[in-house]
Structures are given as structure tokens and as C-alpha cells.
Design a protein around this nucleic acid. Structure first.
Lengths: 222, 222
DNA sequence: TATAATAATGAGTGATTACTCACTCTGATC
DNA sequence: GATCAGAGTGAGTAATCACTCATTATTATA
């Protein structure tokens, strides 16, 4: 776990905002904070506990992150950005038209890609999910990134495939929500609720794609 | 909101364990606690704040609920039991065989029923969802009620309809999870994420049933 | 090696925390 | 009206909270 966290941390924090200097101790702090936040929740975690686990003086935390809340934001923000990154690329719609002739291919690709992301950042995503409802700053971030950017773009894709007659004519928002529920439901079960279970990811992905494709198909049942 | 909360509270606490005496102040305390827990989270809520909002001395809270954690449990436990109640009735499977010839009817009935429940107890369910991952007692309760009771029973129903050839042959757990994701995804979006949006519940329910039925149907797509 | 700048420290701060307890209040029973 | 039991109180407690700051250690540049 430490190795893994340090790996993506170094990666993330460095390419965050034009090469801000990040010290060893900063990495240790974020590392420890993520672990404890994910285990006991943000509010139930004390800064002294973080300092102890990070092997750092408590003052060091406040030297780099002025407040405890600031530390939370510094942890969640880059992950939130990376979470939506694949949807915010410039030529999203064009890539789609060219590369994915069928809705199914698009869904499978996205599913595999974002599921790998979830595995990689599971602890931070857990903290994110839990703290968004109680933190106005995170709420604003979430609204901007996920609601405004992602949902709106995916909506357009749904409309696109509806016009092609590949999926049913129903409110695009509802279609987006049902697909998102299927995927998020798996991600949560897979990595948060029962990560120790034996999972056959390939089989589950095939099943979900089938479920969603059939669910949105025009064909009548039976 | 207060009226609503008081209504189900009186109803709940009274038929909880053979008519334990519940005072006016106890109702006020639980009422205030639920509201603040739902708004800022359990750990971020102080007992003094609860006392203030309830119009009660802080000592009164600890007279009835020995600890803050105890108060949380006293709030969540009865709702957790009611949440799974429809699945735990004695002759669940028989009712099903007689009353619901088709999988679709069963799903629609459950969907409507549990969605009404979610609307009624939304604040407590929010608290429940947020605190289960961090509270061993609630975790144990959830495992017992939801995992052991509900999932196991619904699993058997899925297998039943699979044998009848009404739905696809896939791991029953996965089918249960995908249906649960669809429903929970709607409940969360409807009552927690965007409760102020204009929702057409009947249309959404029809759409979800269609989505799940098509998703699990045997027919090949296109 | 000297100097400047930044990183790191940890004892100390007032505020707040969950919880206690000696006490008062209230209403039912004899 | 005396007695008693439980409901309710609120000042008080030790512990812990996020955060500060004067001081020291480390590093980079000259």
C-alpha cells in the first residue's frame, strides 16, 4: 500500500500545478492522511494522528497545508480532475464518432478504463464520496467537474446514438443515470464493500455491457 | 420536516421493543440529532449542538442514551430493520410464487414499495449510508440484515425465475447487484443528490423496470 | 566555508469535546 | 402530605482538538 500510494502521489503532485516542490515529508503526510481518512472518516481523524503515522511533527502538516481542510482539498482535487479527464479531452465527440461505431464499444472501453482508475485510487475515492456531501468546496468541484462536464458530454453521446436508432428514445438523463448506476454500483461493491471477494472482472464487465445494451435496446422482450 | 420526523419517530420508537417509555424530550433529541447528523455528519456533530437544537440540557441526552454512539445506534437500528422488513416476512417465497407470475411484476412492486420507504426516511438513510463504513456495530447490523437476509432471499428468487427461463443464466449475485444498483442509484439521485429536481417517478419506474427486464432478457440484441 | 532560505520541529494555546454528577423538579402512590 | 422514582438539569472535568510560533536543522548557492 505505501509503495502504491507513493507511486501515484509522486506522479500526481508533481504534474499538478507547474512543478510545485513537494518534499518527502509532504508525501508521507498525504499518504498517512489518505489511509486514516479512508479508515475512520475525515472528521474523526486528528491532525496529531496523521503526524504520528507520517512520522512527522504536527507543525509540519500546517507548514505545508495551512488547515486540516486544506489538506483534504489537496488530496481530493487532483483525483477529481483525473477522474473526469477522459471525458474532458478536446475532441471527445470526434474521437467517439471515428473510433466507436457502436454504443457497446464505447461503453466497454469507458468501463474498463474507469474501473482501472477506481482500483488505483480506491482509498481517495472513498474519502471523496464520503466528504463531498459535507464540504462546500468539494461540492462545488464535483458539480463543476462531474455534473457540468461529464454528464453533459455523455448526454450528447446518448442523444447521438439515439438519433442513429441504436438505443431507445427515453430521457437522456435517465439513461445516463442508469448506466452510471450500473458501473458505480459495481465499482463500489468491487472495491469498497467486498474487495476481498474473488472477482472475475472480465466476466462482470461483459455481463454489465450486455445488461446495459439489452436494457437500452429497441427490441421488445419475449 | 419536524412534523414528519416526529410522526414516524413516535410510530417507530413505540413499536420498537414492547412499548418502552419514550419521553417528549427523547423525541426532540432524536429529531435534532437526525437533522444535524444528516447535515454535517456524525463525527462533526457535537452533543452540545444537539442539546441546543433539541431545547434540552446536554445531560438529558446522556441520561437516555449513555453515549453519543448509542444515540446513533438508537436512530439507525429501527430504520435498518424496517428497510429489510418486506424481504423477511415468513412466507416470502410463497407470496412470490402465487402473486407474481412474472419477474417484472415482482420488480415493479418492490421498486414502488421501497422507493416510498426511501422518501419517508431519507435523512436517516443518509446518516446510515455514511456511518456504516466507519462503525463496526452498524456494519454488523448491515451484514446481518442486508447481506444475509435480503441478498440471500432475492438470490433464490432470481434462481427461481432463471429456472423458469424468464431471465438470463448468469451469476445470481451479479444479477442482484445490477438490479440493486439501478434502484439504489435512482434512490440516491432522487432523494439525496438532486431532490429539488422535477421528477416524474412513474415514468422513471417504468423506465427502470424496462431497463432491467430488457437487460436480463434472453433475446439477442439486434 | 559563509550566508540565506526554506523545512521541520514540538512545546504551548485557547477552545471544544464527550461525558459526569450532585442536585432539582414532577407526578404517581400510599 | 410524605415518600419515592425517574426525568431533567447545567456547572464542572480531563482529554483532545486544530493551530501557532520561536527555535533548530537542512539544503542550496556564492
Amino acid at each position: 500500500m505505501p509503495d502504491q500510494v507513493e507511486q501515484w502521489l509522486a506522479e500526481l503532485l508533481r504534474l499538478n500545478d507547474e512543478e510545485e516542490k513537494v518534499t518527502e515529508k509532504q508525501i508521507k503526510i498525504v499518504q498517512a492522511a489518505v489511509e486514516i481518512f479512508a479508515e475512520k472518516g475525515y472528521s474523526a481523524t486528528s491532525t496529531s494522528e496523521i503526524a504520528q503515522k507520517a512520522g512527522v511533527a504536527e507543525g509540519t502538516i500546517f507548514r505545508h497545508y495551512k488547515t486540516k481542510q486544506n489538506l483534504l482539498i489537496a488530496i481530493v482535487t487532483p483525483i477529481m480532475e483525473k477522474l473526469v479527464a477522459p471525458f474532458v479531452i478536446r475532441n471527445f465527440q470526434e474521437v467517439l464518432n471515428v473510433q466507436y461505431e457502436h454504443f457497446e464499444d464505447f461503453m466497454r472501453a469507458m468501463l474498463i478504463n474507469r474501473l482501472a482508475f477506481t482500483r488505483k485510487y480506491a482509498p481517495v475515492l472513498k474519502v471523496m464520496i464520503h466528504e463531498i456531501p459535507f464540504n462546500p468546496d468539494l461540492q462545488a468541484q464535483f458539480m463543476e467537474h462531474v455534473s457540468t462536464n461529464v454528464v453533459e458530454r455523455v448526454r450528447r453521446i446518448v442523444v447521438h446514438f439515439q438519433a442513429q436508432g441504436q438505443i431507445i428514445e427515453a430521457p437522456a438523463d435517465s439513461i445516463v443515470r442508469m448506466c452510471a448506476s450500473t458501473i458505480v454500483g459495481y465499482a463500489v461493491t468491487r472495491y469498497l464493500l467486498a474487495p476481498e471477494r474473488d472477482w472475475n472482472d472480465d466476466e462482470e464487465i461483459d455481463l454489465m455491457v450486455r445488461f446495459m445494451m439489452h436494457g437500452l435496446s429497441l427490441n421488445p422482450v419475449r
